[in-house]
């Protein structure tokens, strides 16, 4: 599904290149649950952002579903991205001015899905995450774990093939963290959604079937 070849990312500061990522080669198959691990500043989030098309590599080739991304137009890339990728963040990043229901609905608006279809998908997700009673609350009225559930529901709304999670449990208490990780495993197992997560925690990494270790921008271990 994802093929990275010789991905490099660097910034030029006063003539000197400062590397964030070097010679990254990786393959991620459909249905995998991959964890990217490594110390702070290793380039984990940058790699995730490149996979998520929020950032572009300075050099190298990135194929998503056998399409070379650098050869695609901006419009086409957004098209792929909208239809196939969902993001989950450490800090949830819900829109403060929107209710739970509206937050989940936003990506569907961007996909130009009909009103009735939107309503039914949002209702399904609310039901599945047992948030029906909370649908009219605003993010600041929810606990962290609940906000992250909304975040995941929002990522799932467009029915993506790939979910990218950047330290999804980093801000959560352990009980809630467990709940979220169980949910990820379930999504991976039952629905075949490919998941790539960035994490610090060995325990969380254990939920996945593969670990990509990153130190100073270089993959040291791909098991």
């Amino acid at each position: 599904m994802i093929t990275l070849k010789q991905i490099e990312k660097y910034y030029t500061l006063k003539g000197a290149k400062s590397y964030v990522l070097r010679h990254i080669d990786a393959d991620i198959q459909k249905g995998e649950f991959v964890s990217i691990m490594g110390p702070s500043g290793a380039g984990k989030s940058t790699l995730l952002n490149i996979i998520g098309m929020l950032d572009e590599p300075t050099y190298g080739s990135y194929k998503f579903m056998d399409q070379e991304l650098s050869s695609l137009s901006e419009r086409k890339r957004i098209e792929i991205y909208r239809n196939h990728i969902g993001f989950v963040f450490q800090a949830y990043h819900l829109i403060d001015e929107m209710t739970v229901e509206e937050n989940i609905e936003v990506p569907l608006h961007y996909k130009n899905i009909s009103s009735s279809e939107r309503k039914s998908r949002v209702a399904d997700l609310l039901d599945r995450f047992q948030m029906v009673a909370k649908k009219d609350l605003f993010p600041h009225q929810l606990s962290g774990g609940q906000q992250q559930l909304v975040g995941i529901a929002r990522a799932l709304a467009p029915q993506p093939l790939l979910i990218l999670a950047d330290e999804p449990t980093g801000n959560l208490q352990s009980a809630q963290a467990l709940q979220i990780m169980d949910l990820f495993r379930q999504l991976n197992k039952d629905e075949g959604i490919t998941i790539v997560q960035v994490t610090h925690s060995e325990a969380n990494a254990a939920y996945g079937n593969r670990i990509l270790n990153l130190v100073d921008g270089v993959v040291t271990n791909n098991s």
Binding site: H93, I95, P107, Y110
Partner: peptide, 16 residues
């Protein structure tokens, strides 16, 4: 800025 970031991440393009 945060709102703009989120909207872009979940698929909003510039026109929207």
């Amino acid at each position: 800025s945060k709102e703009v970031g989120i909207r872009k991440v979940i698929g909003g393009n510039r026109k929207e």
